Computed example of a mutant assay.
Amino acid sequence: MRYTFKPDDCMVITIPLGSIRSIREGQLMPEKFTCIFKDAYKVFLKGRPKELGAAQLSIGAFVICIGILLALEYDGHHLVYTLPCALYIASGILSFAAGKSPFMPVVKLSFIFNVISLFWSIAAIVICSVMSQGPYGRNDISKSHMFVGLKVVICVLCGLELILALVLIYWESKAICRPHFNTLPLITIKQDV
């Protein structure tokens, strides 16, 4: 016969029994015993979601500020790849909130936003490097260098966001995606001698 449930050491309950020799009426089972639960949310907290969320938030704000600077100084079409970086701000807020409280729907929402942020950071790097700067004469060489420098900063920040999103996706998947749902706790009964 095949067992449907098996213990997986996610929850270990240890019940110390009293000695059978020194037993009194109703004293075999103790009033208190230990239960160690390897919670998936506690594993997620090892990834430092509050710190990574704050980093995501600041990267998103910084990219938007640089994008507005590019739009004011050079051309408004650079807002196409910088304004959607507000998604990084939303991801950062959700990651911070997920690290602050063990409310699983917030962790799941943060996971979804981090997956979207991962794909947007790849798209933003590609769009940023493909978009041209426009015609500048020989007198505008410093303006051209400034433009290229700002675009490089945006690409580096989007690359950092890509790394942060990957790290957060890894730790959030440990909290959300569980390998087994048909598991029982491992119960250990210890008898005093």
Score class of each variant (00 low, 15 high):
54 A>M: 14
96 F>P: 02
96 F>T: 03
160 L>A: 07
189 I>Q: 11
107 V>N: 00
130 V>L: 10
66 I>C: 14
82 T>Q: 05
65 C>N: 10
98 A>L: 08
103 F>A: 09
141 I>C: 08
189 I>L: 15
93 I>V: 13
65 C>H: 07
134 G>W: 03
45 L>K: 04
94 L>A: 12
18 G>K: 01
9 D>Q: 10
156 V>A: 13
64 I>K: 08
61 A>R: 03
161 E>T: 07
159 G>P: 02
13 I>W: 03
62 F>Y: 05
149 G>F: 13
163 I>M: 09
57 L>P: 04
79 L>N: 02
160 L>P: 02
76 G>K: 11
174 K>I: 12
167 V>G: 00
138 R>D: 11
21 R>N: 12
29 M>A: 09
22 S>M: 03
103 F>W: 10
12 V>M: 09
165 A>R: 00
29 M>E: 11
159 G>C: 05
186 L>M: 14
169 I>C: 02
130 V>R: 07
168 L>N: 00
121 S>C: 08
46 K>W: 11
10 C>P: 02
71 A>L: 12
177 C>F: 13
2 R>W: 04
96 F>Q: 04
104 M>K: 07
97 A>P: 10
46 K>I: 11
138 R>N: 10
1 M>R: 01
87 L>K: 03
113 F>P: 01
29 M>S: 09
70 L>G: 03
158 C>P: 02
105 P>L: 08
70 L>S: 03
102 P>L: 06
57 L>N: 12
55 A>K: 00
1 M>N: 09
84 P>T: 05
189 I>A: 15
52 L>N: 03
95 S>W: 01
115 V>P: 00
57 L>K: 06
51 E>I: 12
131 M>C: 06
55 A>L: 05
80 V>R: 10
23 I>W: 05
73 E>Y: 07
81 Y>A: 14
42 K>D: 15
69 L>P: 04
37 F>I: 13
145 H>A: 12
16 P>Q: 03
114 N>R: 00
164 L>A: 02
56 Q>R: 04
123 A>E: 11
81 Y>E: 11
186 L>H: 06
82 T>G: 10
167 V>L: 10
80 V>C: 14
187 I>E: 15
132 S>E: 12
96 F>N: 02
187 I>F: 11
160 L>S: 08
78 H>M: 12
125 I>M: 09
48 R>K: 08
155 C>Q: 13
60 G>V: 01
186 L>Q: 11
98 A>Y: 02
147 F>I: 09
150 L>A: 09
37 F>L: 14
15 I>H: 05
114 N>V: 00
180 H>V: 12
167 V>W: 00
169 I>K: 00
115 V>C: 07
182 N>H: 12
103 F>Y: 11
148 V>W: 07
122 I>F: 05
